[in-house]
Design a protein around this nucleic acid. Structure first.
Length: 617
RNA sequence: GGUUCCGUAGCUCAGCUGGAUAGAGCACCGGAUUUCUAAUCCGGCGGUCCCAGGUUCGAAUCCUGGCGGGAUCACCA
C-alpha cells in the first residue's frame, strides 16, 4: 500500500546516507513533505539536519544522496533536483498507480484503529427555560463531529447530555405561566414548545424588572446604593450587580419563584406536574431542532435525577483524607499544590454545589456505563471548573481520571459583538436553520436548476446544502478560538464553504452515473501522470493521518480544512484534464478510479463532520 | 491583581511536532465555458505573522518579557 511506497523512499535515503557517508540514521526521523508547487518534484527531504553530523555542506549532501539513489534505486525515484538544502524527488508513474491501487482496497478509508476505549461524549447540555441558539449549535456540531471522529479511529463511543431541568430558571417560566391568564400550550398557541417556555421566561424577567426598576428609585433602593462598597461604581452598574441579591432577599416575585422551587423539592404533586408538562414541551421542541441538525443521543441524564449524586464520592474523599471538612461542616478540596485554589465541594448545610453532582455523575458514568474516557463539550468559560473537577478526581485516584477531557470552545460572536438577550441579538437555532435552507432554495430557483426532480427530492437537497453551509462555516474554525459568525457569510455557497465541497462530490457522481464502474478496464499502461492527479493522490494518502490527528486533538476543524483542500484539488484536476473524454482508455480508467476515491473520501470526511452529500445540486 | 485562551491581508480563517518567496476564502479588478454541472477554474490587488529580546544554519511556529482582547477566580449553575 501507499505508505509502504513512501517507506521505500525513506529506506533509499537512509541506505544512501549509509553508502555515501557510512552513517546510520533513524528512518523515523526522516521527514518527507510534499514538494511546494513552485519547485520541481513530488516529495522533498530537508538535508539541513544532516549537516552537523556529516560535516558537509547541505548542497553537497543533497546532491550526493540524490545521485546515489538515482543510480542505485531507479525504481524508487525517477529524478531529483537540489535547491539549497532541499532535495526534491520526482517519483515514477508506477508509484502513483500503486499508491492509488492501495487507496482503493482500503476499508474505512485506511484509518488505523488506534483506539478501543469506551468513550462518553457529553454535549449540548442546555437549560430547559430557553430554546437553542447559535452558541448551542457550535456545541452540538462539535460534540457530534468529535464522537464521529473518535468512533472512526475505533473507540466505542456513546453520546450523552445532561438536561438541566431543575432549579430556579424553570421555576421562573412556570410562575410566569401560572400568572398568565391565557395559560398557553404549544398546541393552543401554535408556538414550538421550547420557544413558548422561553417566552414565559422572558415574561418573568419583564415582571421582575417592573418590580425592580421602581424599587431602585425608592428610599430603600437608594439606601442600598449609598451603602455600596465600591464608591466608584455607577448606579447602573451597582443595580446590575445587585440584581441577584434583590431577587433573593426583597423581591416578591422572586420569593414566589423560590417558593415554587421549594415546593418542587418537597415533591408537591401539582408543582411537579406543571414542571414535567412544561419540560415536556421543551424536550419536544428541542427534538425537532436536533432532528434538523441530524444529531442524537444514546442516553440522557436529567439533573433532577442526578443532582443528589456525589455525596458518596465526597464521603470516600473524606475517608481517604483527600478532602477535608471545615468547622462549619462544609467540605473542601485543596488543590493549591496543583496550581489551583481551595474549592468547596459541599455546602455547610450538606447540600450540593455544581461540582458535587459533576463528581457524582463522572463516577456514575464509570460504574454504570463503563466509561474509560469522558469528553465534555462545554464552553471555555468553564475551563476553571473542569480543571478543578479533573484534578479532584485525580487526587481521589479514580481509575478514569486520566481519561477526562474538556473540549473547550470559544464563544460565538456576531459582527456587531456579543449576542445579548436584552438587545434581542440572540440568533435562534431554528430561525437560523430555516433561513439558511431558504437561502439555498431561493438561489436554486433563481438558477432554474433541479427542475426535473420531485419537490420532495428538491427540498431534501436544499436542506443538505443549507446545513452544509452552516455546519462547515462553524466547524472549519479551530474550536478553541472565539469565532465571529456573520449570518450573511454562513449562507455563502462559493469558495471555502460546505457547498463547494459538495459540488466536487456532485461533479464526480454526475460522471459516475454515465459509466459502468465495473467495466473500466486496466490503467496499467497509463503514463505521464498529471500534476493535478499526483496532488490528489498525495492528499488522499494523507487522509488516515489527518483523521488520527483530529482524534488526538479532538479537533473537527482539521477534517473540515482537509475536505476543503481535497475538494479544491479535485476542482483543479477537473478543470485541467478530461475524464470521460480522456485521451486514452487507460487515462479514463485511471481518472475515474481516482474520482471514485475522491468522492468516497469526501463523503466519509464530511460524514465525520455530520454533513450529508446530495446526489446532485 | 492571579490563572488561562487568543492576537497572521480590509474582513473571516488556515499554517504553529522549526525549513524554500507566509497561504486560502470573501471583498475589489480582469480573464476562461456555448459544459464530464461556472455552486468551477486562472490572473491581479492586498502582510512590520501584536512588540522586544533569546535559542538555531534557519522562527509565524520554540523560550522569556511586554502590549492588546476574551474568559475565569461565588456555600450560582
Amino acid at each position: 500500500m501507499a505508505l509502504d511506497k513512501l517507506q521505500s523512499l525513506k529506506s533509499a535515503i537512509s541506505e544512501a546516507i549509509k553508502a555515501v557517508y557510512d552513517h546510520d540514521v533513524d528512518q523515523t526521523t526522516l521527514v518527507l513533505s510534499e514538494t511546494k508547487k513552485e519547485f520541481d518534484g513530488d516529495y522533498t527531504v530537508v538535508v539541513f539536519p544532516f549537516t552537523k553530523v556529516l560535516r558537509k555542506k547541505p548542497e553537497e549532501i543533497a546532491n550526493s544522496l540524490g545521485a546515489w539513489i538515482k543510480e542505485h534505486k531507479s525504481d524508487v525515484i525517477s529524478d531529483f533536483n537540489v535547491i539549497k538544502g532541499f532535495l526534491n524527488f520526482s517519483l515514477p508513474d508506477n508509484f502513483w498507480k500503486d499508491a492509488m491501487a492501495g487507496l482503493k482496497v482500503q476499508e474505512d478509508q485506511g484509518i488505523a484503529k488506534s483506539g478501543s476505549s469506551k468513550v462518553l461524549v457529553e454535549y449540548s447540555s442546555p437549560n430547559t427555560n430557553k430554546p437553542l441558539h447559535l452558541g448551542h449549535i457550535r456545541n452540538i456540531l462539535l460534540g457530534w463531529s468529535t464522537h464521529k471522529i473518535l468512533a472512526a479511529v475505533g473507540h466505542d463511543v456513546e453520546k450523552t447530555k445532561v438536561v438541566n431541568d431543575r432549579g430556579i430558571a424553570i421555576c421562573k417560566s412556570m410562575l410566569a405561566w401560572q400568572m398568565d391568564e391565557e395559560s398557553k400550550t404549544p398546541e393552543k398557541s401554535g408556538v414550538k414548545g421550547d420557544h413558548l417556555v422561553g417566552d414565559y421566561y422572558v415574561a418573568f424577567e419583564k415582571r421582575f424588572q417592573a418590580e425592580y426598576q421602581p424599587w431602585q428609585q425608592s428610599a430603600d433602593g437608594q439606601a442600598a446604593y449609598e451603602a455600596r462598597k465600591n464608591k466608584d461604581q455607577s448606579e447602573a452598574a451597582f443595580f446590575k450587580a445587585h440584581k441577584n441579591k434583590y431577587f433573593n432577599e426583597k423581591s416578591a416575585i422572586g420569593k414566589a419563584a423560590r417558593d415554587l422551587l421549594i415546593s418542587w423539592e418537597q415533591g408537591d404533586p401539582k408543582v411537579r406536574e406543571l414542571w414535567s408538562t412544561m419540560n415536556g414541551w421543551v424536550y419536544k421542541g428541542w427534538e425537532a431542532t436536533y432532528d434538523q441538525l441530524g444529531v442524537s443521543f444514546d442516553f440522557k441524564d436529567y439533573e433532577s435525577e442526578t443532582y443528589l449524586l456525589g455525596k458518596d464520592i465526597i464521603k470516600e474523599g473524606l475517608e481517604k483524607g483527600t478532602f477535608y471538612r471545615q468547622e462549619d461542616g462544609s467540605v473542601w478540596v485543596d488543590l493549591e499544590d496543583r496550581g489551583l485554589d481551595k474549592k468547596i465541594l459541599l455546602r455547610s448545610d450538606g447540600t450540593s454545589v455544581y461540582i458535587t453532582q459533576d463528581l457524582g455523575t463522572a463516577q456514575m458514568r464509570y460504574k454504570d456505563h463503563g466509561a474509560e474516557k469522558m469528553i465534555y463539550v462545554v464552553g471555555d468559560e468553564q475551563d476553571y471548573h473542569f480543571q478543578v473537577l479533573f484534578e479532584a478526581l485525580k487526587k481521589l485516584e479514580e481509575p478514569y481520571a486520566d481519561g477526562l477531557y474538556h473540549l473547550s470552545y470559544g464563544m460565538v460572536d456576531l459582527p456587531t459583538g456579543k449576542m445579548k438577550g436584552r438587545e434581542g441579538t440572540i440568533v435562534d437555532a431554528d430561525d437560523l436553520i430555516a433561513e439558511v435552507i431558504g437561502e439555498v432554495r431561493d438561489a436554486a430557483i433563481e438558477r432554474g436548476e433541479l427542475e426535473e426532480i420531485t419537490q420532495e427530492e428538491r427540498e431534501d437537497i436544499y436542506r443538505k446544502i443549507g446545513l452544509a453551509a452552516l455546519k462547515f462555516f462553524i466547524l472549519k474554525v479551530n474550536p478553541k478560538k472565539r469565532m465571529v459568525f456573520d449570518p450573511k457569510e454562513s449562507v455563502d455557497m462559493q469558495g471555502q464553504t460546505g457547498p463547494y465541497i459538495q459540488n466536487a462530490y456532485v461533479r464526480i457522481m454526475s460522471m459516475l452515473r454515465r459509466i459502468d464502474e465495473d467495466k473500466l478496464g486496466s490503467y496499467g499502461a497509463y503514463a505521464n501522470i498529471d500534476p493535478s492527479e499526483k496532488s490528489l493522490i498525495i492528499t488522499l494518502m494523507n487522509y488516515p493521518e489527518e483523521v488520527a490527528k483530529a482524534a488526538k486533538h479532538y479537533d473537527p476543524s482539521l477534517i473540515a480544512n482537509y475536505t476543503y483542500d481535497l475538494a479544491k484539488k479535485f476542482h483543479k484536476f477537473y478543470h485541467d484534464v478530461r475524464v470521460l473524454s480522456a485521451e486514452s482508455a487507460e487515462a479514463k480508467a485511471f481518472r475515474l478510479t481516482l474520482c471514485r476515491q475522491v468522492a468516497d473520501t469526501l463523503e466519509h470526511a464530511m460524514d465525520l463532520l455530520g454533513i450529508e452529500m446530495p446526489p446532485r445540486m
